[in-house]
């Protein structure tokens, strides 16, 4: 695994997280992620580690287009005054399967 940069470049946070909920980063999960991301002042980038595809974490269309299914490794990169809190809360959200395992996945 490549090393994760942390505090290497000033004013930037990078964390790696694996999507672990059953349906991956689908609409509702992505919506939660984006909602949370927009609450921070810092910029939020979400990067697929395998393809390096980068999304603006505050844009639902961008995040959806990552099409990250279960098992995808994501890098969450935040930059700004609340970057640390942003990074750790967003990582938590993904790790906790977006707050709940959405049961039927029909929507």
């Amino acid at each position: 695994m490549p090393p994760i940069r942390e505090h290497l470049v000033e004013a930037m946070q990078e964390r790696r997280v694996i999507v672990s909920n059953r349906l991956g980063l689908h609409a509702r999960a992505a919506a939660r992620l984006v909602r949370r991301a927009t609450q921070f002042t810092s910029s939020v980038e979400i990067i697929r580690e395998d393809t390096s595809q980068t999304a603006d974490g505050k844009s639902i269309l961008n995040v959806l287009l990552l099409a990250a299914s279960r098992g995808t490794s994501l890098i969450i990169r935040t930059e700004g005054p609340d970057e640390e809190r942003a990074a750790s809360e967003l990582v938590d959200l993904v790790e906790q399967k977006f707050g709940e395992e959405i049961s039927d996945g029909l929507f």
Binding site: A27, R28, A30, A31, R32, V34, R35, T38, D56, K58, S59, I60, L61, N62, L64
Partner: peptide
């Protein structure tokens, strides 16, 4: 939720 966020999507 995703629908609403799309309508708030600044990038879009």
């Amino acid at each position: 939720d995703a629908h609403l966020l799309m309508l708030e999507d600044k990038r879009l």
